[in-house]
Nucleic acid binder design. Sequence first.
DNA 1: GGGCTAAGCGCG
DNA 2: AAAGCGCGCTTAGCCC
Length: 576
Amino acid sequence: MDAAEAPAWIVLGRTDRVVHAILLDGSAAELGRERVDPARLTSWIADAEARWAPRWVWHDTPQWYGALLADGIRVARCHDLRLCHAILRDSALVDDAAAVRRAVEWDAAPYVDAEDAAPALFELDHAQRPAGPPADADAALDEFLRQRAAVADSPEAGRLRLLIAAESAGALVASEMRAAGLPWDAEAHDRILVETLGERPAGGGQPARLADAAERVRAALGDPAASLDSQPKLLRALHRAGVLVESTSRWELAEQRHPVIEPLLEYKKLSRLLSANGWAWLSEWVADGRFRPVFVPGGVVTGRWASSGGGALQLPRQLREAVRADPGWRLVVADVAQLEPRVLAAMSSDTALAGAARGRDLYAGIVESGAVATRQEAKIAILGAMYGATTGESGRLVPRLRRAYPRAMGLVDDAARVGEDGGAVSTWLGRTSPSPSREWSAAQSRATEAEASGAEETHARRWARDRGRFTRNFVVQGTAAEWALAWLADLRGRLAALPPVSPEHAAPRSGPVFARQAHLAFFLHDEVIVHTPEEHADAAAQAVADAAASAGRLLFGSFPVDFRLDVHIAETALKD
DNA sequence: GGGCTAAGCGCG
DNA sequence: AAAGCGCGCTTAGCCC
């Protein structure tokens, strides 16, 4: 490792028995190559990171970084070729003729670690598993150069550079959060289950409070054998008892007045807790004081993250008390107030909406502006505007917003129109919506033909409106996801700069990299949880706030919009 | 016994 | 009160 010039980029790739590293300068010209013995890879990367702090270019972050983190090494920056390929391939800001669009071997699904995989996947022969992106160094270098060219040739190269850097930083964060885990108090979780459901019966069977609710339902139905877990059977039992609902969903049941309703809603609630996050979940997903979900960056078309296994993004608020910092550590729990409408104000340069949001609850600001009468109306109207509501109270309130905030509303209305016409829309940094399906396009053109039936026209129209609501929401949800990535990336750097605590204050269950270091432990669209040594809790909370301000500037420059945070320092993630 | 869908509900 | 966006997961019920 003795390059004359410090490499700005190092492309990693592997074949069966050897890892190759290709060292590049800032303009991606090759400085040299090295063969690395896989057994020495961690120390080689650690040395290169300490010496040059390059941006690591690799085919798929979890496949490289998971092992490094397990060995106690973190890197500052990377370029995830798989994720960036997906962005650039579809981006409307990239030239149609760009070579990156034709490199189909890089169209690969997220990697699933064998350890996390469902048994069915685990048992597949190697040849049957879904193909990943190419892993060897020359293929990685070729794709990297294609991606650089696509960005450099774009009229919006600056935005795309931000987006692919943020996406790649997110990939690092996702691997790191999995390595560190979310501190989880299994005893507190068990206590919540016992208080809510009753003691767990030793021999299987239902816990007492759940069984009691079931009995009260059956008594109210006058049907001692009624089945409560099968929707068709439950529906028939309700009909026999005179409760004439069309479904067994909660909102419809709640409209009815009948003695069975209260215990039935109670039963459904308890039953849901037991099946989704009961003792079985606890023993499957929590080990050694940590819940380690698999985060999937870019897993949603809009750029939001998805998760795989454990339902990480659906943890019920009921269980927040089980999220508990290690002794001597604290949680910093922070969420952004009304992220999406603030993002909409900024991307549409709507100074009136930004003004309504500045320094206060955005909904209160809208009420003060006189557009609507109450906070609840403001909330319903804003959600309706971003989701495309046309009926009900929400549909009635949206026109008032259109008068008060024409620029913001114009942006989402335009996005909807483009989507209805079969076009593509893009986020602020250039992530572009998927094209309509062949069936969708065929239905639209069929509906315009002279001999099209009324039913065909109606169906096509409804389908076009569906797509309009999708593209309307895409630009806002996707840009909010970009803001959140920028927030995460910036925060990650600030936390890494905090000093490690002494070994006697370590939290070893967070793994070798994070045992002595404040770190991100959870992320959910507009919320983060940081696990931090108590002595750095205030600094970590400040880092969360500073990172939010920094993310706003990075995306929107000096446009006067603020991103208000709710920040709590506590031992548990419970919010009052 | 596995693969698939629909219903329902948790999260933003 | 219950339309209007994006997800993952469990269960039941159906098919092979």
